[in-house]
């Protein structure tokens, strides 16, 4: 009986410690992921507007944008989102310069 109490209490302590350490980390991780994806989506939208506005074809930008969209299609973590955002922003810049 008392051994059971020790075990249960130790398990409770472990759970509390794990929760205290893990929950904030996991929450921050999740938030960073969603934030980066939000930035990536905004960049992709912006790039697609620039592409529609550009009259001539910019193969480099098309290539970058296609890659960004293919990565975005598979979803993924913070790294993938960051990559999508960078590629889309570079494509956006190329199209804007081509329009000027």
């Amino acid at each position: 009986m008392t051994w059971l109490i020790w075990l249960v209490a130790a398990a409770v302590l472990l759970a509390a410690g794990f929760g205290v350490a893990f929950l904030p980390w996991w929450r921050a991780h999740d938030l960073r992921k969603r934030t980066t994806w939000s930035r990536a989506r905004a960049a992709v939208d912006s790039a697609s507007v620039s592409r529609d506005a550009c009259r001539g074809a910019v193969p480099e930008a098309e290539r970058l944008f296609a890659r960004a969209e293919s990565i975005a299609g598979e979803r993924g973590g913070v790294k993938a989102a960051g990559m999508v955002a960078d590629l889309a922003e570079r494509a956006d810049r190329l199209w804007r310069e081509a329009r000027r």
């Binding site: 249960v8 209490a9 130790a10 409770v12 509390a16």
Partner: peptide
Amino acid sequence: LFAACAVVFL
């Protein structure tokens, strides 16, 4: 006592 402390901490 141990269990009580664990619960308070939790």
